[in-house]
């Protein structure tokens, strides 16, 4: 065996080994790497990023005060005169003579907050409910199974109620306010998250590595927290992204129905859409701006969520 040959072989094997290393890393890191190459993910991320930037910087970049009725005298409601887009007011004026463009920009923050807070409420509460049910059903013995059955039947009942109706009842209980919208939309999402996490956890609970953990003598609580849960979160996180989109739309719907924020001082896309309906025939643009804003944002979150779903899907995980 000559040295040259051994060196060459070593080099070749090293080459394949390093090529392998370049693709290594934890599953999360791999999914992120995969997402960076997906056009869908990039589109979604750009839209969401834009939205977040506007929401954060809104009050600072808005050209005018969104609440000031500066051009009130130029608007004639009974004659349907709403000065349209012009150099001074890019999106025109609303029915009180306020600058639509500024209102849209400032309104983004409230819209985002509604979406995020509502989703967080649904995610956290749903995850707790679903997680407890799954953990009880898997390791709680006979009693645990009963606990799980009770929880999940309650979840089923909640799921059977149309989401908007559920949100409406919550909103009716709490009275119209922004907080109401967030809680109402969030509560309506709880059963979805609960079911999803429970299903995902039960699937993981039957996997070989959980059996391996049991056979190693890993305590039950630790199995749930360190084995089952991390492997079950993927689909739930994806769902959260998708729910963010629907939450924004639902919040808009609640606002539209008059359960949103009654405070005219802080613009919000859903409320703006509700306000615009009175002038729909004369000034459709007033409805179109917030509607398009909501749709584009929802689209951004949906694209991002779908891309995440694809990159986390265990069936596709092996391709790289």
């Amino acid at each position: 065996m000559t040295i040259a040959k051994i060196e060459k072989l070593d080099r070749l094997i090293e080459a394949t080994a390093t090529a392998r290393d370049a693709r290594g890393g934890s599953l999360w890191r791999q999914s992120i790497r995969r997402m960076r190459r997906s056009p869908m993910a990039i589109c979604g991320a750009v839209l969401v990023g834009l939205f977040v930037v506007v929401a954060v910087l809104g009050p600072f970049i808005a050209p005018h005060d969104p609440t000031a009725q500066t051009w009130g005298r130029e608007v004639f409601l009974n004659r349907n005169v709403f000065p349209g887009p012009r150099a001074e007011n890019w999106f025109g004026l609303d029915h009180l003579g306020r600058d639509m463009f500024s209102r849209m920009i400032v309104g983004a923050r409230q819209t985002l907050m509604v979406g995020v807070v509502a989703t967080l409420i649904g995610f956290v509460a749903g995850a707790v409910v679903g997680g407890v049910a799954a953990a009880a059903g898997t390791f709680g013995g006979r009693w645990g199974e009963r606990v799980e059955a009770v929880i999940m039947r309650a979840v089923d009942v909640a799921l059977a109620i149309p989401m908007l109706l559920l949100a409406l009842s919550v909103a009716a209980l709490l009275g119209p306010s922004l907080r109401t919208v967030m809680i109402a939309v969030g509560v309506a999402q709880i059963p979805i998250f609960a079911r999803l996490l429970r299903g995902s956890m039960l699937a993981q609970a039957h996997s070989d590595y959980v059996l391996a953990a049991i056979s190693l003598g890993v305590p039950k609580g630790r199995i749930v927290v360190s084995h089952i849960l991390p492997n079950s979160l993927g689909p739930v996180i994806v769902q959260a992204t998708l729910v963010l989109a629907t939450a924004i739309i639902e919040a808009a719907a609640l606002s539209y129905l008059g359960l949103g924020n009654p405070d005219p001082g802080s613009p919000e896309w859903g409320t703006m859409l509700a306000d615009a309906q009175r002038f729909l025939s004369g000034a459709p643009q007033l409805a179109i701006y917030p509607a398009v804003g909501i749709i584009v944002t929802a689209l951004g979150f949906t694209l991002l969520g779908e891309a995440m779903r694809e990159s986390l899907d265990p069936r596709l995980r092996r391709q790289e």
């Binding site: 599953l27 590595y209 059996l211 391996a212 003598g217």
Partner: peptide, 20 residues
């Protein structure tokens, strides 16, 4: 505690290792 004295090797080497 007793499980430390008896262990198992599984058929599916990938499925029996926590992927994370």
């Amino acid at each position: 505690r007793f499980r430390s004295k008896m262990q198992m090797v599984f058929q599916d080497p990938l499925g029996s290792l926590n992927p994370r």
